[in-house]
Write a protein that binds this DNA or RNA. Structure first.
Length: 482
DNA sequence: TTTTGAGTTGTTCGA
DNA sequence: GTCGAACAACTCAAA
């Protein structure tokens, strides 16, 4: 507030939009007058939700600390509450004398139901609710419909239509804020106080929480990685933007990212924008087909795929002990960093569903437990895509990744595998794809005894590939008859 | 209503 | 080692 021409007060409710730049809800609340920025810890999501993650929550808490610092610099604060938003927000509005509550729209099913309850509770208290864009480039990706007025179920037509949608204006960061009321801000809790296990050691080494770190990483990527992105993005040892944890928590505005891409020509920026479009496509799929959170997107695969139940194999996959070096490297990167390169997400997901024949929901859950960027829409969309139950129009046998071929293609020098599977560090290049083929002498020389230092393969890929084809064919046939 | 072109990311086989 | 074809015909979306 610079002029003081408005003296109304509003509550700014932060959720997964933990930033100050290009945030329409914050900008609008600030224009209206004094504001009370707040965040509400809701154990229905954080500790009792379907996908609970100590690591991702720890990252979020770090983002809140960073946001609080920024808001204090601007002249306000970040007020913390625990409980149900539909109870806490009317109370906060009353304490601050606020007439309105502003927030950024969230498309996930839980959030949409919650926000309806909040709106009703606020209306009953005589407070108006204002929902703003900000989490997506197109405010309402779920409303990008085809010519027949139906939601898109194939990416490319969605992408073409989505690119034509006019963008909202960019919002400058407020220059100053004036705090409404004199609330008790409250301390930022640790995971234990939220009823969570501690985050894994070193959870913040690979990604620093908060908007400042996010903007720094963005600058770095735009200046160094972007122009070659289309060529380097497939290399697990480098090349991807690694911005996803910040995008997930709203530390970065996807619209601001797109605007920065718009100034740059070439295949790299175009390719990166496609990745942003994928995020919006899967948000649209989730909003229009909320049943995908539990069921296969393709009806013919609902209840027809014969998934196996093998806790030992599942554990080997989770811990990176399958004996396939690329798969194990990916799973260990996930454990180590809370992040995995996109190509590896496909490789390990294909391995779980089509080599181990374990239900994609097991993989979806594990990813949500471990990923800093874990997002219901993108994660579910990706898992269903690889499991061939999703929006991918290609037939199932076109989506079976060979972990050895993938390693030869995308990690030919073994840089990635050796980094994450150190027991293979001294295995010679020509044996790194199939270390179990090492002779006794080679195993001794490399200090890597198969079955001792590094596991023998838990399954035979060629064999399981044939079995997977049968399983999927049987499911499709069963559906045809039923 | 019918037709037509297109569909993220792959693998294997055989020439 | 490299290359093209086959994998199996399907669904979507636009004209």
């Amino acid at each position: 507030m610079s002029e003081g021409e408005n003296d109304t007060a509003s509550v700014m409710w932060f959720r997964r939009d933990l930033r100050t730049h290009d945030l329409p809800a914050l900008a609008e609340a600030a224009r209206a007058g004094r504001i009370l920025p707040c965040f509400i810890f809701d154990d229905r999501l954080l500790s009792r939700g379907r996908f609970v993650s100590p690591r991702r929550t720890a990252f979020m808490l770090g983002c809140l600390e960073s946001l609080r610092r920024d808001l204090r610099e601007l002249g306000a604060d970040l007020v913390l509450r625990h409980g149900r938003p539909e109870e806490e927000l009317p109370r906060l509005a009353s304490e601050a004398g606020a007439e309105a509550v502003h927030w950024t729209k969230d498309l996930s099913p839980f959030a949409r139901a919650r926000d309806e309850r909040v709106s009703a509770a606020l209306a009953a208290a005589g407070v108006t609710a204002h929902e703003h864009p900000g989490s997506y480039i197109v405010d309402e990706p779920e409303a990008v419909f085809s010519g027949q007025g139906r939601p898109y179920t194939v990416f490319s037509p969605f992408n073409r239509a989505w690119q034509e949608v006019p963008r909202r204006p960019f919002e400058d960061r407020p220059e100053a804020l004036e705090l409404a009321g004199s609330p008790e801000p409250g301390d930022i809790p640790g995971p234990a106080e939220l009823g969570l296990d501690p985050a894994p050691e070193g959870w913040d080494e690979a990604f620093e929480p908060g908007e400042a770190a996010a903007r720094e990483a963005t600058k770095e990527f735009l200046n160094r990685g972007l122009s070659e992105y289309h060529e380097t993005r497939n290399r697990p040892s480098g090349g991807s933007s690694r911005l996803s944890p910040w995008i997930r928590w709203g530390c970065l505005s996807p619209l601001e990212l797109e605007l920065k891409l718009g100034l740059r020509k070439g295949e790299g920026p175009r390719r990166f924008r496609d990745e942003l479009a994928w995020r919006e496509f899967y948000a649209s799929v989730l909003a229009n087909f909320p049943e995908v959170t539990r069921l296969e997107f393709q009806k013919r695969y609902r209840g027809t795929l014969d998934w196996q139940d093998d806790p030992g194999l599942l554990e080997a996959w989770k811990t990176g002990q399958t004996g396939y070096p690329l798969v194990d490297a990916g799973m260990r990167q996930l454990k180590g960093e809370g992040w995995m390169h996109n190509r590896l997400r496909m490789v390990v997901a294909s391995f779980l569903t089509k080599d181990l024949h374990l239900d994609w929901r097991e993989g979806e859950r594990h990813f949500m437990n471990e990923l800093l960027d874990g997002d219901l829409a993108s994660n579910n969309g990706g898992w269903q895509w690889v499991a061939s139950t999703g929006t991918d129009p290609a037939p199932y046998f076109q989506r079976m990744f060979n972990p050895m071929t993938q390693q030869e293609k995308f990690d030919p020098d073994g840089e990635y595998v050796r980094r994450w599977v150190p027991e293979l560090a001294k295995v010679p290049d020509e044996r790194l794809v199939r270390p179990w083929e090492m002779t006794e002498e080679e195993q001794s020389a490399s200090g890597c005894r198969i079955g001792d230092d590094y596991p023998a393969p838990v399954i035979d890929h060629a064999e399981e590939r044939r079995f997977a084809v049968e399983r999927y064919r049987a499911a499709a046939d069963q559906d045809e008859q039923g």
